[in-house]
């Protein structure tokens, strides 16, 4: 299974063994507009991969491609090869099984029109969990990990959409965790969350990476610095470089533009 994973530009050849996802020559278009061009990158097991870059650089598009969202986004076209555990995701017959292993959190929370409890119980129900006690247990565990349990444990039966914006975002994270994913995609999750809660979620992410790979798209360069093991820098559809976060932030960059961006010199 590992044999068909080709080496890629993102890191050392040890990547081939430890990579969860390998992206080769990924190009994403919307109509005739190119959002991402020729991306080569890998996502390792149990790492947080930070993705930074100015607006419109293709970060969100990259996450979409990983979950095969292009199938329901009009006009979005994806070229290139993405393997997940060595399997080409284009060739995966059961796209539902693929997506259920990938948790996605977008910038603005989407509270499904269900109760807090049902929001988190939905994914387990979809994969066939029926027993009430088992569902209760999953719901509590996911809400705890998303640092939300204490605030909602007395209102599990009220609508998720009645929670505050920051609470809804944590509900969305709890919902993603309820899928028991091996890959978690976070797109600027802290945009609607206060700094204190952001810090709590960041602590949670550090824990979670022991169980899964995490891609953290963020506009906060310091957030990438705090959390990411490696950081990728995108610029208007171009993958400028990916390197160990510590190296990038100590000024060891392959491309001066990376340095300019993290120093806030353009954007």
């Amino acid at each position: 299974m590992v044999g068909d994973v080709a080496p890629n530009g993102g890191g050392a050849s040890a990547d081939a063994l430890s990579a969860k996802v390998v992206v080769q020559n990924l190009t994403i278009r919307y109509g005739n507009q190119v959002a991402l061009r020729g991306l080569d990158l890998s996502i390792r097991r149990n790492e947080i991969l930070g993705v930074i870059g100015p607006a419109g650089s293709g970060k969100t598009s990259f996450l979409r491609a990983l979950n095969r969202m292009d199938e329901f986004i009009p006009g979005m076209e994806v070229e290139g090869r993405i393997t997940f555990d060595g399997r080409d995701i284009r060739r995966v017959r059961n796209v539902y099984a693929l997506r259920s292993r990938i948790g996605v959190v977008f910038p603005l929370p989407v509270g499904l029109p269900l109760t807090v409890y049902e929001n988190v119980a939905l994914a387990p129900r979809l994969r066939g969990v029926r027993k009430g006690s088992e569902l209760d247990e999953i719901v509590e565990r996911c809400l705890r990990r998303a640092a939300l349990w204490e605030e909602v444990k007395d209102r599990l039966d009220s609508l998720g959409s009645l929670l505050s914006g920051g609470q809804q975002q944590r509900l969305t994270i709890a919902r993603a965790l309820s899928q028991e994913p091996d890959l978690l995609l976070l797109d600027e999750f802290s945009i609607a969350v206060d700094p204190v809660t952001t810090m709590r979620i960041e602590e949670v992410l550090k824990e979670l990476k022991h169980e899964m790979s995490i891609v953290l798209v963020t506009n906060l360069v310091q957030q990438a610095r705090r959390l990411a093991d490696r950081t990728a820098f995108f610029l208007t559809g171009e993958h400028v470089e990916t390197s160990d976060t510590a190296r990038i932030f100590s000024g060891i960059v392959k491309d001066p533009r990376t340095h300019d961006y993290i120093e806030g010199r353009f954007g």
Partner: peptide
């Protein structure tokens, strides 16, 4: 539509999304 996309992203089929949401 955001509700549907959130469900599809979790791996729900079209019909599961229709029936539950």
């Amino acid at each position: 539509r955001a509700f549907r996309e959130a469900c599809w992203n979790m791996g729900a089929t079209r019909w599961q999304t229709i029936r539950r949401i």
